[in-house]
Amino acid sequence: CHSECLGNCSQPDDPTKCVACRNFYLDGRCVETCPPPYYHFQDWRCVNFSFCQDLHHKCKNSRRQGCHQYVIHNNKCIPECPSGYTMNSSNLLCTPCLGPCPKVCHLLEGEKTIDSVTSAQELRGCTVINGSLIINIRGGNNLAAELEANLGLIEEISGYLKIRRSYALVSLSFFRKLRLIRGETLEIGNYSFYALDNQNLRQLWDWSKHNLTITQGKLFFHYNPKLCLSEIHKMEEVSGTKGRQERNDIALKTNGDQASCENELLKFSYIRTSFDKILLRWEPYWPPDFRDLLGFMLFYKEAPYQNVTEFDGQDACGSNSWTVVDIDPPLRSNDPKSQNHPGWLMRGLKPWTQYAIFVKTLVTFSDERRTYGAKSDIIYVQTDATNPSVPLDPISVSNSSSQIILKWKPPSDPNGNITHYLVFWERQAEDSELFELDYCLKGLKLPSRTWSPPFESEDSQKHNQSEYEDSAGECCSCPKTDSQILKELEESSFRKTFEDYLHNVVFVPRKT
């Protein structure tokens, strides 16, 4: 048989008469490798580009789960590009990614509803959504962080984005990388972005840091009482949809009607710091009717980097990364020049730590249904340095008659930039024990000054392991946590139920 035959053949030295091919099969003959313009397919066939392209389009058009959109890589027609490569849609070739590779997620039936953290986790790592997304989240724990972890990498949506009755959302900033909504599939009414009845939605994105392009379709905003109209108009300008909307697409009466839409800028007039305090004062603000001013709200939190936005980490279910302080308005003076500047002394802060701070007014709604208010920009203030805590785990070892090696770990709280350490030492008198000992005694162990690591005695271990207080009263049991108490109650309830079950099964009433 021919060298490319495997198993047997019907005619000697003829690659077209093989029972099976050793390498690849091409047009009725066995070959060692697939010549151009053919590609290896499933490690035994040679196919042309049209064959591989037909497989790709067949799966793409069917949208069946589990099928493969075949691509070409290293002269092979394979189910998908290997790690580190992405497909070129024009020629199906796998090309190296520039940075992290995109991950295209194809949605069944063309859309997916995100109504819980669990459903959001199914899209973790996706960068391109081939379909439409509907966000409908009523509640949950730590929602802002969970949504950002699972949806934060999405850069492109081919269909539309719909935010509907998501009472738990305060902001859409968890879509931190969303840059493009194509609108290839539109919501009824030709809408590519749809926001309806979101009672706590206050911000779409921080438009000073976020760009969003909507290729096709219109915007729809109705019944978002805490979303200011200025935020919607800003989205029109940034996304390129200005002029597409009709009169009733953006409701003037049901958007922002319960919001404090600040239209003035508060400026800080005085800032002073110490290692654990920050004193702030800002310019006074009074609405047209000074009785509408209820006070100020001061927001602050630790910020290692200057990239904080107002609604980071917030949701309507209680999660809030900001510390909020309510401040009463100052006494009002008739003389504008003698107006008191409101302020606040922030206490209990960490030394040498940068804080993000902003302040906003708290006002009631005027009778004319106009909203007044003022808010400052987010500023960054760093507390002063102070003395560091003591170095940890000092170790001293003498390696000769004239040297001592000293080692330690950095302090747990540096409280500033540590530039150097101060080492103090003092000579001590020799131990009298060394002169009084009889060095001729056998088995004498000389006193040693070398360091030995501390260890816990058996008594201390027994005390720590004991669940009861000892007789001397030195140790006591740790208080039980809520989960331990709940577990004990469940076990007790189970024992009672099981005992009742045994009584009912074992003891049967005697027939009379």
Rank of each mutant, 00 (worst) to 15 (best):
S398Y: 08
R247D: 04
Y194W: 11
A195K: 00
K242M: 12
T371W: 11
G217C: 09
L212P: 05
D393N: 05
V325K: 03
L392S: 13
Q258P: 13
E231C: 14
I114Q: 00
V238I: 13
Y380P: 00
E187Q: 06
N255S: 08
L153R: 06
E148Q: 11
G110R: 06
N200D: 07
G125Q: 14
L201R: 00
T127S: 11
K234R: 13
W322V: 07
H341N: 12
R138D: 03
Q354A: 09
F365H: 02
T323W: 09
L265A: 02
S116F: 04
L123D: 01
A374R: 04
L349M: 05
N200Q: 09
I181S: 00
V397Q: 15
L133W: 00
L151P: 00
A303I: 15
N224K: 00
T118R: 07
K234L: 03
R247P: 07
G243V: 00
T185M: 07
I114V: 11
D315I: 06
Q403R: 09
F220V: 08
V381Y: 03
S366P: 02
L345Q: 12
G131F: 01
L196C: 11
L153H: 06
P342G: 10
V117M: 15
I278R: 00
L151T: 05
K226E: 07
N141K: 11
G152V: 02
H222Q: 11
S389T: 08
F268T: 02
F174Y: 14
S208H: 10
L349G: 01
K162Q: 15
D377Q: 06
Y372R: 15
G140L: 14
T361S: 09
T383C: 03
K253S: 08
A385M: 09
Q121W: 02
C105L: 01
L147I: 05
L180V: 11
W282I: 02
Q258W: 12
N150T: 06
D115A: 03
L212Q: 06
Q306H: 04
T241P: 09
S389N: 07
L345K: 05
F296P: 02
E302C: 07
Q314P: 02
W205G: 04
E156I: 12
S400V: 06
K103I: 13
S173A: 10
F299W: 15
A251W: 15
K218Q: 04
P284R: 07
S319N: 14
D377F: 03
T118Q: 01
C228V: 10
R124V: 13
L252T: 09
T185L: 07
L107H: 10
L331G: 15
Y300L: 10
E109A: 07
P342S: 03
Q354P: 10
C126L: 00
T215N: 14
K360C: 10
K209D: 01
P411D: 02
V397M: 12
P351A: 12
D257E: 07
E302I: 08
S338M: 11
L345A: 02
L212V: 12
G139A: 08
K375A: 09
N334P: 06
N263F: 02
V104A: 07
L229R: 13
D115K: 10
C261I: 06
L349Q: 01
P287H: 11
F220R: 15
V238Q: 11
L108P: 14
S396Y: 01
Q203G: 15
L107K: 03
V128C: 10
L107V: 10
P394F: 01
Q199V: 13
S173E: 11
C105N: 01
T213F: 04
D249N: 10
E146M: 02
S171W: 02
K242G: 12
K226R: 07
L153N: 10
G343K: 11
V324W: 10
K218M: 13
E283G: 15
S321Y: 02
S333V: 06
I188R: 14
G217V: 00
Q403A: 02
R332V: 11
E237L: 13
W344N: 12
L227R: 00
K253H: 09
T273P: 04
M346Y: 01
P304F: 05
T386W: 07
R165M: 07
R138I: 15
M297L: 14
I154L: 09
Q354G: 14
K234I: 10
I114F: 02
S319D: 15
E122I: 03
I357H: 00
C261R: 06
T309A: 07
R179E: 08
I327H: 01
P304S: 04
R370G: 15
R291K: 07
T361V: 04
P351G: 08
K350Q: 15
G152I: 01
L172H: 00
M346E: 03
S119Q: 07
D292H: 15
W286K: 09
L294K: 10
T386L: 09
L161R: 00
L362I: 07
R247Q: 06
F275L: 14
H341K: 11
Q314L: 14
L331V: 11
N248F: 14
G343T: 05
N320I: 04
N399D: 15
R347T: 12
F268P: 01
N255P: 06
K218S: 01
N387Y: 03
N150S: 10
Y194T: 11
G313F: 03
D377S: 10
Q121L: 13
Y305L: 13
T118W: 05
L133N: 00
L186W: 11
S208F: 14
S166Q: 12
L345T: 07
S401M: 07
Y160W: 03
I114R: 00
L107M: 07
M297N: 15
T118P: 13
R247Y: 08
C126T: 01
L161D: 00
K267W: 07
L169A: 14
V359M: 09
A195P: 00
A316E: 15
P330E: 09
D393A: 15
G240S: 09
F221V: 09
Y160R: 08
L123V: 12
S119H: 10
G243R: 05
I327D: 00
L108N: 15
R247L: 08
L266A: 02
C317M: 09
L161S: 00
S192Y: 01
S398K: 01
D393S: 11
L266N: 01
I378T: 11
G140T: 04
S376P: 01
A303W: 05
S338L: 09
K277G: 15
N190Q: 09
K409R: 14
D315G: 07
R244C: 06
N198V: 04
I154F: 01
P394C: 14
T361G: 13
L362V: 03
S119G: 14
D206A: 14
E262A: 03
H106W: 09
N320W: 13
L123N: 01
S192L: 01
A374G: 13
E148V: 03
L204T: 10
N136A: 06
L204D: 00
G183I: 00
D289G: 03
L252A: 08
D384F: 02
S260Y: 02
N248S: 12
E310W: 06
F299E: 13
L298N: 00
I271A: 02
T273F: 06
R369P: 06
T323Q: 15
V308S: 11
Q216L: 07
E231G: 12
I154M: 14
K103T: 06
G110C: 10
W205V: 04
G313P: 06
K103V: 06
W344R: 10
D367R: 02
T254M: 14
G139Y: 05
H222W: 08
N190Y: 08
D249A: 07
T254I: 14
V390N: 08
T215E: 04
L151A: 05
R369H: 06
Q121Y: 02
W352G: 02
G318K: 02
R124P: 01
N130W: 02
S166K: 00
D249V: 12
F220L: 08
W344E: 10
H222E: 11
T241N: 11
S400R: 10
Q354E: 09
K177G: 07
Y167L: 02
A144Q: 08
K267C: 08
I137A: 06
M346S: 03
S116R: 01
N211F: 04
T361H: 14
D257H: 08
T213V: 13
D206V: 08
Y194G: 13
L153G: 08
D367A: 03
T185D: 12
L147W: 01
P288G: 04
G313V: 11
Q339F: 12
G131C: 01
P351Q: 05
S260A: 09
E184I: 11
N224V: 01
R281F: 00
L201G: 00
D292T: 12
L345I: 14
I134G: 03
A168V: 04
I232F: 01
E155F: 07
R124I: 15
S166D: 03
I114H: 01
K209C: 14
E236W: 15
S321F: 12
T118K: 13
C261H: 04
S269H: 12
S119F: 04
A259E: 05
I188C: 04
S333L: 04
I157L: 05
I278L: 08
T241Q: 13
D249E: 15
R179V: 10
I357N: 00
E246V: 10
L298T: 02
M346C: 05
F193V: 10
M346T: 04
D367K: 11
W344G: 14
T113M: 09
R165L: 03
D384S: 06
A316N: 10
F358P: 00
D292A: 04
S396K: 11
K177A: 08
E122L: 14
L123K: 01
A251G: 07
K407G: 06
Y194N: 14
